[in-house]
Amino acid sequence: MGKLGADPFSISVSGFDMAGTLLMEYWKSAKLPTEGIRRHQDIKTPTICHILDATGKVAAGVASVEAIFSSSGLVFRFLLTIAASVYHYFVWLFSAVAAESNIPVWFEPVSVAKSKRIAPIVKYITFASPNEDELIAMANALSSENLFRPIENNKCSTDTSFQMLKPAIWFLFQKGVKVLVLTIGSDGVILCTKGEPNSWRIDLEKSHLHGFSQQLFETMTSSLVGEMLASLSSVLDVMQSVAIGIAAAKASVEVDSNVPSQFSLETITGDVKIVYSAAKVMQHQSKL
């Protein structure tokens, strides 16, 4: 986010163990703010160990994140910072605070098991970005019984998969979620929203442009033609933002590190235009 010109602020906890020290050293080297990260000698830095199968997919995982759930006091220390945010990436402790400040909240399910945590806070969620299995888990967590079933045939076309997932998608919209960015692996994403495209605007008066974001906005608005949706964060619409996300993800998987040392404006905008021009609109009646 920082390398794309945003100004992120993280609220979390860390210990003085090896994991915590390495993370803090990198955080500072990347010139990211650390004021919201609480460090204490009695805290064990939250860590996750994943076991991969022969294809490189996660087969199992063990997480030690108890420290996160014992740090609710941090939320209240940074109420003003949260209230001044333009966007809010989901951590369950913050969702009600964000909602009171009229800040859109993004829920990232992470896994099927964690997807179920949407149940008590769904009314605060604006965006969610599940894969197919996480989508089903989210919908089932909000229903009185397991009404939705995952897709068993992974070789279905995108249109067929969408038709099969429509009941779960619509159910989440009925529960209050505004936008679903459904990730479908190498096929990209299905961007789902209730209503017509002109309802995809998220009005945020607090947003501002600088650095890379300013250049990216100017390049896109001068290069991409066709019907432009109302801007997301008063800058880019949801479709454009998804295209940028895919282009940035492509740049990330092309390097050995988790995040490229720097993003090339020319490369990103070129890929964004390819993604954006390849998108197609699928309109469906709300009755499923």
Rank of each mutant, 00 (worst) to 15 (best):
A59M: 12
A59V: 06
A59S: 14
G61T: 15
V62K: 09
A63T: 14
A63H: 13
S64I: 13
E66K: 14
E66D: 15
E66F: 09
A67W: 09
I68L: 15
I68T: 14
F69Y: 15
S72H: 13
G73A: 11
G73L: 09
L74C: 15
V75D: 10
V75H: 12
R77I: 08
R77A: 12
F78M: 09
L79K: 12
L79H: 08
L79N: 09
L79T: 14
L80G: 07
L80I: 04
L80R: 13
T81N: 12
T81R: 15
I82G: 00
A83D: 07
A83I: 02
S85V: 04
Y87F: 10
Y87I: 11
Y87R: 07
H88N: 14
H88V: 14
H88I: 11
F90S: 13
V91M: 13
W92Q: 07
W92E: 11
W92C: 06
L93P: 05
L93Q: 14
F94A: 14
F94I: 11
S95W: 00
A96R: 02
A98V: 04
A99V: 01
S101V: 01
N102I: 02
P104D: 04
P104F: 03
P104G: 03
P104Q: 05
V105S: 09
F107T: 03
F107S: 01
E108H: 13
P109W: 07
P109E: 06
V110L: 12
V110S: 15
S111P: 04
S111N: 08
V112D: 04
V112P: 01
K114V: 14
K114F: 15
K116I: 10
R117T: 10
R117A: 12
I118N: 05
P120Q: 02
P120I: 00
V122H: 06
K123Y: 07
Y124N: 10
Y124A: 02
Y124W: 11
I125H: 01
I125Y: 02
I125F: 06
I125S: 01
T126M: 05
T126S: 10
T126K: 04
F127C: 06
A128D: 06
A128P: 03
A128W: 02
A128K: 03
S129H: 11
P130R: 05
P130C: 04
N131V: 06
N131D: 15
E132Q: 09
E132P: 05
D133C: 07
D133H: 11
I136W: 00
I136G: 02
A137M: 07
N140R: 04
N140H: 04
N140V: 05
A141L: 03
L142T: 00
S144C: 08
S144K: 10
S144H: 11
E145W: 13
E145V: 12
N146G: 02
N146I: 04
N146V: 05
N146M: 06
L147C: 10
L147W: 10
F148S: 01
F148N: 00
F148P: 00
R149I: 08
R149C: 15
I151V: 11
I151F: 03
E152H: 07
E152N: 08
N153C: 09
N153A: 08
N154E: 15
N154S: 12
N154F: 11
K155P: 04
K155T: 10
K155F: 09
S157A: 06
S157K: 07
S157H: 07
S157W: 06
T158I: 14
T158M: 12
T158G: 01
T158K: 05
T158H: 05
